[in-house]
Design a binder for these strands. Structure first.
Lengths: 343, 343
DNA sequence: TTGTATGCGTTATCAT
DNA sequence: ATGATAACGCATACAA
């Protein structure tokens, strides 16, 4: 059987291709009566336009790319990315876009993105994440004229971004730890080339200083965003005797927790611990993790919205969406008994 | 500037479009000299064929879909799926295919897959997972003539599948627990509608019976594949006093571990625990998890290979690939001291 | 409001 | 071995 085409649908409805096309694309300027006739045929036949033909003729593929840099094989199993993908996927479904996923390592695939994705016109635009603030890839992509939205922070102000309020979040963490009367507050940061990590660090530092209790340099250790790295870094940190630790992600906090356990330290009595993200593992940790909540899934849907705007009007000024963060207190910083008292 | 087209490339190389096309698609029947000339122009200009045009003319999109059913929002954060996506993604990159990701819930999006993905001819084929053995969706898709590969088990033998050797793996778990001299061996299974769970259960049962120590019905509890459900199920199971537990996934084993801890039971002294998967969380658990290792990422790459075969020759008999499983002994079943002795 | 005609960039079939 | 030409299925500027 011959493939069902717009041509055939038009024929069955007794109209021209253009009219059928208009109806199918929801344009107006079609008599209701005719519109209904076409719609009926579509319903009856189950016609669906051919994606490639549409793309070729209309210059839009309705495919959105999500690009994630893979630092290590582990990265993708990070619940943060899982939540993000979830959000992007849902938004794509809702807005009738197809999601194309690109996991790439830094080296070989680096060139692959610009060339394969963009010049092939396969995707209309790209949501990209897990890059650092001045990632040259971002330049390549913008120069290539690819509509782009970054999840995270970037230095180029012409690129739309969606990001958590890292500044506010880190400040919340500092204030919480201070309010607990902790004296030796340390932190396991993310890599400083990451915009999010840098911002959180500055905000954390500032909040402590503002309280007259400046962050001591020897109580700062850096790790990438994995739990293993955080575990190792925490071991070094523990030698300096902190009584509180702010980890830049829940996943890292889990690593810190492990180090704490191995050192025989009790949480929160000996050391209070605060993470960042509030993804499922935070709640499941023992003890459950106090953390700074951010709306990762919403970041994903928001990114899609921004991208679609951008695609529609590439020349509009780059919007930057900042999503709220909040403090979620659990037992890694406040014993359950104390929580009950205050409740 | 006008878009770079095949036409233009041909012109620059002083050949016809057809010849240029042949060169670019690596077909033979072109004089080396001419071939080089075209290749040089391609190199120089950075020409990349327009994806949609290719699809339209050639009937192949070079896009492969990965469809994952979302039971709960949590599902995708399961490291199993993360590893699978990873494998599929890598295979797609290597084989010059684009990956399109479809996360769908059971209800609304159900119809969306067949219609949107398939009749639009957007994808050449689909890797699908997290369905149950007789999922009607699979029928819809095959009837629609979509090249399909299932990761997991299905009842329809005409569908190619790639799957772990669940039978062998479960048997390994049983034998290991038996070799430890455990007397009251229990299990937290996955949902029985899942082919993998059903197979593991039968094999586990059989292996115990073969050893003259049949599985006691009251030592069997069922959970979906989440840690929370496993935790709750394990609490019921613990009331029956098992001295060993086989959980059908690492993630569930983590839930069991939590229940064990809350019950004040020691692992492995009071209860030996074995999981399934050997994904990162297994190693990170306290104590580290003895588990049945399966090659999830490889399953992903294998699925892509199968799918590509299928696309090339849809009428060929459906191959079914079974990936090996193996026992990985860690401290959740054998104390470190004992491991050292035997090493 | 509707129809006509053209173009989108490639592959593939046929000559040559 | 190479080139001309007809699809592929749709959107859209333009004409009616």
């Amino acid at each position: 059987m011959a493939r069902l085409t717009l041509e055939r649908v038009a024929e069955l409805a007794g109209v021209s291709r253009s009219t059928a096309s208009r109806v199918i694309n929801g344009q107006d300027g079609v008599r209701p009566e005719i519109r209904k006739r076409v719609l009926d045929v579509v319903e009856l036949t189950g016609f669906v336009p051919h994606a490639a033909a549409r793309t070729l003729a209309g210059q839009r593929s309705r495919i959105l790319g999500l690009a994630i840099r893979q630092t290590t094989a582990q990265v993708f199993s990070d619940p943060y990315f899982a939540a993000l993908v979830q959000g992007v996927s849902r938004a794509c479904n809702d807005r009738d876009q197809t999601l194309s996923l690109f996991l790439f390592e830094s080296t070989h695939d680096h060139d692959l993105l610009p060339s394969r994705l963009l010049r092939t016109k396969l995707v209309d635009g790209l949501v990209i994440t897990a890059t650092y603030a001045d990632d040259p890839l971002l330049w390549q992509l913008t120069e290539a004229g690819v509509p782009l939205v970054v999840v995270g922070e970037v230095s180029n102000p012409d690129i739309p971004t969606v990001d958590a309020d890292n500044h506010g979040g880190a400040a919340l963490a500092a204030e919480h730890l201070l309010s607990l009367g902790r004296q030796r507050i340390g932190t396991v940061t993310g890599p400083m080339r990451s915009g999010a990590a840098a911002t959180r660090f500055r905000a954390f530092e500032r909040a402590l200083a503002a309280a007259g209790q400046p962050l001591q340099p020897d109580l700062v250790v850096e790790a990438d965003f994995t739990d293993d790295a955080a575990h190792d870094a925490a071991k070094r940190l523990l030698a300096r005797g902190p009584d509180a630790i702010f980890a830049f992600s829940d996943r890292m906090a889990l690593g810190v927790l492990r180090a704490l356990g191995e050192a025989g330290l009790s949480v929160p009595d000996d050391v209070a611990l605060v993470g960042f993200d509030d993804l499922p593992p935070a709640r499941l940790a023992r003890p459950p993790l106090t953390t700074i909540r951010q709306e990762v899934e919403q970041a994903g849907t928001e990114a899609v919205a921004l991208l679609l705007e951008r695609i529609q009007d590439p020349s509009a000024p780059a919007r930057r969406v900042e999503l709220p963060t909040s403090l979620v207190v659990r037992e890694s910083s406040v014993p359950r008994r104390a929580q009950e008292v205050s409740a």
